[in-house]
Design a binder for these strands. Structure first.
Lengths: 233, 233
DNA sequence: GCACGCCATCTTCCATACAAGATGGTATGG
DNA sequence: CCATACCATCTTGTATGGAAGATGGCGTGC
């Protein structure tokens, strides 16, 4: 889960109810407790969380800004469903932003980019281990961590936040198809290629490989979704 | 001004007070009526807008999500100032996203990309005319329109929204330096190059030119800001 | 049987009231 | 004169009530 507090400045000093509602709602959506298409009233959600409507209302505003829900005026709040079209958009954005992130890291001086490469390699090793152990959940977790680390180390907070937003949107879809697609052995290899280019400071190559990696993932995911007859998800 | 309603679904059916407050505040920030660093209370803003605190509060939440303001718990809301570091981040993101947009348009079939190229050329002509008439404001307006059109025609709503967000953040800085930098004659030429690549469907070239265009703009803007001693803006 | 309009109900929108934290000035003690 | 503790004040966080709009069901007219 991508953590990024945008309101409270004190880290966990005293989480407000809004923050609680925001995190709880987001988690509920990510874990399909509130499935896409789910429609409920703020009152109802507030009751479940044991708070008044106000914090829920404000949390919903933030989630709407991030594209996770839509509030229909006087008709309730609905969890956004993703169409294959949405997935295309999301991947186009991720391809561009992660490509840029890889390029940025590779363009950093060696004393900055080499440690980053080390870290990335370490996470990649975790992925490999998880794959050997046939632990798909652990693999997915490490994979997510690898990609998050990639944008973190770009040194661009806005880029990090933007990628986080679209990845949150598409989290459900990736989880859904996790067990449906062939064993992701290619990913580890491709990650190694990205890291190698970063370590050597080959910015253009790092960008190209990062983009190609995500494009391939998309080419694998999109047909799967269509074939599942998933018009919305 | 980049318009993008994210809440109300009926186009201007009946703007709510929240929407009013949101637009008014955003405009006030963009036009420097609320200058960076300005700190005020929601109550005070509500008074100016002739409404209660509630709609202002919700508008502020949205603006915070977009990075235009920060609400300090129980100390008021402050308009975000941009450091040169922020400008670097913003341009890195814009370079990546506009590059992707140009690439996406150029990759479209001819019957889609050629009309887009026509439109872009038309706007570019407006820029040229404004430049000949020494009308810098009209030039800036057309320039903004050109870049907005570029991401619009990419056919990716998320990309459009993201670029809009960061451009809103940096609007003030661009306006400030508008009269300080040399006459932007190069822009028209570079735009032509981008459009030509799009028209011919040369995706990689279109991307490259769009990126180079923004990179050059950044190289022109950043030293100017530093030289002005603008630590924040 | 069908279409239309009315109305009860539910929902967000907005205003207001109160609670609790943060701040700055002032008074007090050294 | 300086440091510290207190307190009045200001600000957001949260709860709640009323207003207005949207919806769906029911009844009425044809």
């Amino acid at each position: 889960m991508v953590r990024m507090r945008s309101s409270a400045e004190s880290p966990a000093g005293k989480p407000t109810l809004v923050e609680e509602a925001y995190e709880a709602l987001k988690r509920a959506i990510r874990t399909n407790v509130f499935a896409p298409g789910y429609q409920g009233s703020e009152q109802e959600i507030a009751l479940q969380f044991g708070m008044s409507r106000t914090p829920v209302h404000e949390a919903v505003i933030r989630l709407q800004e991030e594209g996770l829900v839509r509030v229909l005026s006087r008709r309730g709040v609905v969890v956004c469903a993703l169409s294959p079209e949405d997935m295309r958009e999301i991947y186009e954005v991720v391809v561009a932003l992660e490509g840029a992130a890889a390029e940025l890291i590779a363009a950093q001086p060696a004393e900055a980019r080499v440690p980053a490469a080390e870290e990335l390699d370490a996470v990649n090793a975790r992925m490999e281990a998880a794959l050997a152990a046939e632990d798909l959940v652990a693999w997915a977790e490490a994979d997510e961590r690898f990609h998050q680390l990639l944008v973190e180390r770009s040194g661009n907070a806005r880029l990090l936040r933007m990628v986080g937003t679209v990845m949150d949107q598409s989290h459900r879809a990736r989880m859904l198809t996790l067990r449906l697609r062939p064993k992701p052995t290619l990913s580890v290899q491709e990650h190694r290629g990205i890291v190698a280019a970063i370590r050597e400071g080959q910015a253009a190559l790092a960008q190209e490989r990062a983009k190609a990696h995500r494009i391939r993932a998309r080419e694998q995911l999109l047909p799967l979704l269509r074939q599942l007859g998933m018009r919305h998800l």
